[in-house]
Amino acid sequence: MTALVVLAHPRPESFVFAVFESALRGLRQGGDTPEIADLYADEYRPGSALSATHRSALDRTSTLVLVYPTWWTSQPAILLGWLYAATTEGLGSVKSLVCVTTHGGPRKGNLVAGQSGRHTAARTVRAACAPGASFHWVAHYGTDKDRQDRRVAFLHRVERELALLAS
C-alpha cells in the first residue's frame, strides 16, 4: 500500500507547490513510494467521475494526502468536486487522511470564520474512509504576511511529519 498525494493548485511556482514537494520528500524518506494526483495537470472537472488512473491509485492507497490552499476557509472547488466523486465511489482502503494546507489569514481569523475545510475533511471525508481511519491536520497560517523563515520552517515541518507518518 502506498500514499496518494492529491494536489489542488494551478501554479507550480506557488508556495503550495513547494509544500507538495516537501510532502513527497517526507513520504519517500519514510520509505513510501507515493503516487500523485495533480488535479489541475490532470484537468479534472468538478461534477465528473474520477479518472481510471485516480480510481486505481485510490484503490491501492492506505494514506490519502490532500495538499491545497484554503480559500474561503475551505477546499478549492476543484478539490471539493474530486472529494465528492471519491467519497461517492468509496474510500474504503484509506486508513489515514492527511490535510496539508495553507491559509492566507491568521489562525485566530480562521477560527472565527469557522474552519469549514478542516471540519469537512475530519468529519465527512473521514467518515467515508475505512473504519477507525486517522486524521492529521498540518496547516500553515498567515501566508499573506509571511516571512521567508516561517515558510521554510513549515516546509521542514511537512517533510518531518509526513516522514513520520510513512515510517
Binding site: 468538478p46 461534477g47 480559500w71 474561503w72 475551505s74 472547488a77 476543484i78 471539493l80 469537512t120 468529519r123
Partner: peptide, 14 residues
C-alpha cells in the same frame, strides 16, 4: 454536499 457548499457554488465564491 459533503456537509458543505456544492463545488459549483464554492467555485463561484473562489
Amino acid at each position: 454536499t459533503m456537509s458543505t457548499l456544492p463545488p459549483a457554488l464554492k467555485g463561484w465564491l473562489d
